[in-house]
Design a protein around this nucleic acid. Structure first.
Length: 586
RNA sequence: GCGCCCGUAGCUCAGCUGGAUAGAGUAACUGGCUUCGAACCAGUUGGUCGCACGUUCGAAUCGUGCCGGGCGCACCA
């Protein structure tokens, strides 16, 4: 509809120029806004104010000219000039009612579009290290990534969701060693658990299972394990050195095969647990990309070599450095340590190069806010490799700060004292959790009070929207119970009987659904859809209490039922994109 | 010190890429179920949009500088 109005204005301006009323060469950007206040009509344009200066006329005078030159249209009831020079458009009922027919015809498909033209996109999200279960901080990235993917699919893109599994590197070694040390403790060895190891209960569970499954196969006496290891931090030593030496000791005493067994035991269980957790949260990935597998095929070395061939690698202090400062990064970065090991950053370069080579139109990364320092260097590397860094879109998700009443909770995986995503889901339910996470825009820091989420779960806005859907379903059930039915013949809707202000408001809101989806998807802002649904539900609830649907008059009844069905359909469609259920009863 | 994000009602947050009188939820108060589900509705109270300049017809929105909060600035992942 905005498009149609814009065309009318364009035509009017062109005619005025041709008639000499306006100077040549004006190329206005025509802007049409939805009005906030219905006394201003449905749509408004600021064109007269925009052109006032170049045309050397007052805005109101100009507005009069434009309005007089507007072609007739079946969609426009009347046009008014208001305020400093706004042109307000009041639409005909016929224009607004179109949407009702479209919703009934298209059902679940309504609101979807093809602007993406089937282009392939990749969205990578969560990608938490498999060193422990997901906590509530990861939940935000999970809910956001999935919802964004849904929205992008809704506007016609083909989306691959991917999880990058950091299953190589020091953190994983620390995990494997943690499991082994717990295993030794369970086997009766006197060992002080390192301050820097993973202390979560799940590590002890793995140890128990290993004892059951492998008995004493991996046991070494405490003296052999601890001999010559430097002091841990509580004893006045260095905790990093302490754990590193223990890792080396584990590898040496266990040998490659046994070490790998323990390593994989932890990795596989945690990865499977994460996978299941996310599936229960309504998220299914198209790909789980293993860093270790990538390294084993030599892609990391190859990426470094490519940078080398292009002359962006130099050696200093025995390490290999990438000249990222040539591409706008703040300092050069090490890609290979002096001990010959590639850095995490090197893996990242190889991984992103690999993504780019898979033919995506755009690659979208959803990162925690703590990773923002990596944006510059990853883009620098892609540029150095001859790729267009603009194809990489990075969205930073701010942390959710957890409170238990007034008390602020820690979210460290290492300390083991975190609230898991699974616990949250069990406490507040998947629907409320999914909804709550995307209610605020991602750049916004979020306070998450668990106490509130639990005790006031009935006040959660998700129920407000779901309730509207349930009410609609309930009315339809009642209709059937009374032996009546909705006449689905379009010629019998009797939409002309919809004359109440709430009915007009509802139709108006329904007409905005499609553009809300488009905007939410393109801007990556699911919260816009959330706000829309809340407003829609609000208008509906007001309407519901004010006017009965199941009235005697058949025509009015059928008209209102039609509107109800449309509203229910839109709530269903919207909630589905958010990964939230639309129940018929609650 | 440098970089990114954020300061809007007592609290949690919107504000549709610069528009008309800055809005919801929550909390407080008032009223509404013999009527399709009261997890609801109607109303009242509540604001120096962090501060100061600037850009223009017009700024919560854009620019600069301060103030305050969060997060980064490794041969860690």
């Amino acid at each position: 509809m905005k498009q149609k109005i814009a065309e009318l204005i364009e035509q009017a301006v062109a005619d005025l120029i041709a008639a000499g009323s306006l100077p040549e060469g004006l190329k206005p950007r025509i802007q049409i806004d939805n009005t906030k206040d219905k006394s201003h009509g449905e749509l408004a344009s600021n064109i007269a104010m925009m052109l006032a200066k170049p045309a050397r006329k007052s805005p109101r005078e100009l507005a009069t000219l434009v309005v007089d030159a507007l072609p007739e249209s079946q969609w426009v009831e009347k046009v008014e000039i208001a305020g400093p020079g706004f042109i307000n458009f009041f639409l005909t009922d016929q224009g607004g009612l179109q949407v009702v027919h479209q919703i009934i015809e298209q059902k679940e498909q309504f609101g979807r579009s093809t602007v993406g033209a089937g282009a392939k996109l990749q969205v990578e999200f969560v990608s938490a290290n498999p060193t422990g279960p997901l906590h509530v901080g990861h939940g935000r990235g999970a809910a956001y990534g999935e919802t964004l993917s849904n929205l992008l699919e809704a506007i016609g893109y083909q989306v691959d969701r991917e999880y990058y599994v950091n299953d190589a590197g020091r953190q994983m070694d620390i995990l494997a060693t943690s499991v082994w040390l717990r295993y030794l403790q369970q086997s009766g060895q006197e060992i002080t658990f390192p301050s820097n190891a993973y202390k979560g209960d799940y590590v002890i569970e793995f140890a128990d299972q290993l004892v059951n499954e492998y008995s004493s196969k991996f046991v070494h006496v405490a003296e052999d394990v601890m001999q010559g290891i430097c002091d841990d931090e509580p004893a006045g030593g260095d905790k990093e050195k302490h754990i590193d030496q223990l890792i080396e000791r584990a590898k040496k005493l266990l040998g490659t095969t046994n070490y790998r067994t323990i390593f994989d035991y932890g990795l596989d269980h945690i990865r499977d647990d994460i996978k299941q957790d996310l599936e229960e949260f309504g998220i299914e990935y198209q790909g789980w990309f293993s860093e270790r597998a990538m390294m084993e095929t030599g892609k990391v070395e190859s990426a470094i070599e490519q940078l080398q061939e292009r002359g962006f690698i130099y050696e200093k202090d025995g390490a290999l450095w990438f000249k990222s400062t040539d591409f706008g990064d703040g300092k050069d970065r090490v890609v290979q340590r002096d001990n010959g090991q590639p850095t995490y950053f090197a893996s990242d370069i190889a991984y992103h190069l690999n993504k780019f080579q898979r033919g995506y139109k755009e690659v979208i990364n959803i990162w925690g806010a703590d990773h923002h320092g990596y944006m510059a260097r990853v883009k620098a590397a892609l540029k150095a490799l001859g790729e267009d860094p603009e194809r990489l879109k990075i969205r930073l998700v701010q942390f959710a700060i957890l409170y238990h009443g007034k008390e602020r909770l820690s979210m460290s995986t290492r300390s083991g004292s975190f609230v898991t995503l699974r616990e949250l889901r069990e406490e507040v339910g998947n629907d409320a959790a999914r909804f709550f996470y995307v209610t605020r825009k991602v750049e916004q820091h979020m306070d998450f009070d668990l106490e509130l989420a639990k005790s006031q779960s009935k006040d959660n806005p998700v129920y407000y929207i779901q309730f509207a859907h349930a009410r609609i379903a309930s009315v339809q059930k009642k209709l059937k119970d009374e032996g009546l039915s909705w006449n689905s013949d379009a010629s019998q809707y009797h939409l002309e009987r919809l004359i109440e202000p709430q009915e007009k408001a509802l139709i108006n809101k329904l007409a905005l659904y499609s553009e809300t989806i488009l905007k939410s998807a393109e801007m990556g802002e699911p919260h816009q859809l959330v706000n829309y649904l809340r407003e829609l539900a609000g208008i509906f609830h007001g309407y519901y209490t004010e006017h009965k649907v199941l009235v005697e008059n058949q025509e009015i009844r059928n008209a209102r039922l039609t509107l109800y069905i449309c509203t229910g359909q839109i709530i269903h469609n919207g909630l589905t994109l958010l990964g939230v259920s639309a129940p018929d009863s609650m």
